[in-house]
Design a protein around this nucleic acid. Structure first.
Length: 459
RNA sequence: GCCGGGGUGGCCGAGCCAGGCCCAAGGCGCGGGACUUGAGAUCCCGUCCCCGUACAGGGGGCGUGGGUUCAAAUCCCACCCCCGGCGCCA
């Protein structure tokens, strides 16, 4: 049973270097690992020889009859132990170092990603859906971007300038307040009210309802994880600026339910017939956004806390590509249901998450910004997480392998709301609610049904 | 939080008191094979991790981390978790 990255390091280190270069990292780590690994193996051999010798002596002691012979053997055993002492300390150090280095490696990248992505590209659009509404003055910008992608997209030109989601929320509908939230909690927090709250909940229900019918077990997981588990599901060193820590406790707030969902089977041994296992997690997500700078400071697009329904799959290694298609397809169906024009892009090595071997993003068209923005991220993490979490499957012939894990956003509610506010607004500021949400709102007398209407507009 | 009982391989479960053929009995499950037209039953072999290309071989593993000893699943210490009872709080 071997981890793909370890196997590659030992048998084809050039592949690992290629991956590191493609992601924009130094390749020094490979040499460093190989050096330490060699040293570790040599010392391990030496130590085990000594231990063997010691075991032979120890086992023979009870059969020895003469006290003198006995004393000589014990003396010999003692001397081996004193020799072992310092070597074992050194071995432990080397082993820890080796593991530490090993855990710094990002995932290997699927061959087709190299094939599809041009050098230095951030992403490659694969397909478009829907008819983007493009404001007259943004048309050139829109067409340039579409043409560059080599796709043909139908669109509608509109004569009125759409209002950005932040202004819609706070000034037109007056159903959000990030200013007061900023005062009491800091920037990137929000208060949202009434119809937007119902919309938030309806979006989550819509996604959970859909996924539960697709074979997913729906789950509310812990919202915090211990250090040991957090470092197994993410590249902690690279992401620690993004994670909130609970003061005085060994606990971290989750950035997504992907994290606790992956941990659910930690240290478990599964049978082939147990797989696949499909989870749809629903949880708040907490993100420090420390490296975001001043990007997206307005509104609720990029915030420290939001709700998300997440798809998660544990599967057999040879089936993970198929499951990734399934996940992105689910996300697309959900977003088509919301009637929001989008495109699916293949994320290129430079921009991929370190845990992912292959990653798709679904980007929604945002009419007021005249650009596509990320709404969904769908990753095949292959054995990167399962190696760290020790999640294995027993195959035919009793061979053990690490399972593959995949994750994909279904709907992150606040982002979906921004997309709805921009795409479904009408010139008078009324926002049309997607029909698929109706059945989740219908049962609630206080909830809006077809439209969210600004107070000063009559309908 | 206090008192009592307990944590053994994917699961169940012996061993622990009296440390040494325990690198862990037995069972279930799972894999391979024999038998069978097939299934079942039965029988045999295999089924924790690491090093070793492989065969051989070796090392480590009994909640976690230390300690005692030539030798620890077994003895000692600390911590974690589970079950039962009491207390406290929703």
């Amino acid at each position: 049973m071997s981890w793909s990255v370890l196997e590659a390091l030992l048998s084809r280190p050039e592949d690992v270097k290629r991956m590191l270069r493609a992601r924009g990292y130094s390749t020094d780590l490979v040499e460093e690992f190989l050096r330490v690994d060699r040293e570790w193996k040599e010392l391990k051999k030496r130590v085990e020889e000594l231990r063997h010798e010691h075991n032979l002596i120890t086992r023979s002691i009870r059969q020895v009859k003469s006290e003198e012979e006995r004393r000589a053997l014990v003396e010999k055993a003692r001397s081996i132990i004193s020799e072992l002492e310092s070597l074992e300390v050194k071995l432990k150090e080397l082993e820890n170092l080796r593991n530490m280095i090993l855990r710094r490696f990002p995932n290997l990248i699927r061959e087709e990603v190299y094939q599809i992505c041009p050098e230095d590209a951030e992403e490659v659009p694969l397909r478009y859906w829907g008819r983007p509404k493009v404001y007259r003055e943004d048309l050139e910008k829109f067409l340039t971007e579409i043409r560059r992608s080599g796709h043909d997209v139908e669109y509608d030109v509109i004569d009125w300038k759409p209002i950005g989601h932040a202004d819609m929320l706070e000034n037109v509908l007056k159903l959000g307040d990030t200013e007061k939230a900023g005062e009491v909690a800091g920037s990137r927090f929000f208060y949202i009210f009434d119809d937007i709250v119902w919309l938030d909940l309806a979006l989550a229900l819509y996604a959970l309802d859909y996924l539960s019918q697709k074979g997913f077990r729906i789950v509310i997981p812990p919202y915090m994880l211990k250090h040991e588990y957090m470092t197994s599901v993410i590249d902690f060193e690279a992401l620690k600026d993004a994670i909130y820590k609970i003061e005085g406790e060994d606990l971290y707030l989750i950035g997504t339910s992907e994290h606790p969902l992956a941990c659910y089977l930690a240290k478990r041994e599964l049978l082939e017939q147990d797989l696949p296992i499909l989870f749809a997690g629903f949880s708040p997500c907490f993100r420090r956004e420390a490296s975001a700078g001043s990007r997206d400071l307005k509104g609720i697009f990029r915030v420290h806390q939001f709700h998300k329904v997440e798809q998660f799959v544990f599967c057999l290694p040879e089936e993970s590509d198929r499951w990734q298609d399934f996940l992105i397809n689910n996300a697309e169906e959900l977003w088509r249901g919301l009637e929001i024009p989008y495109r699916v892009v293949l994320v290129c090595p430079k921009e991929m998450g370190r845990t992912a071997a292959k990653q798709y993003d679904l980007e929604a068209w945002m009419p007021a910004q005249a650009t596509f923005r990320e709404m969904v991220s769908c990753s095949n993490c292959t054995d990167w997480q399962s190696y760290r979490l020790h999640i294995r499957v027993v195959r035919k012939g009793m061979k053990r392998e690490y399972v593959h894990t995949l994750n994909s956003t279904a709907i992150a509610t606040t982002r979906a709301i921004t997309a709805i506010l921009e795409n479904h607004q009408e010139p008078d500021g009324v926002v049309k609610i997607p029909k698929v949400l109706r059945k989740y709102l219908e049962v609630l007398p206080g909830a809006p049904k077809d439209y969210i209407v600004p107070k000063n507009v009559k309908r």
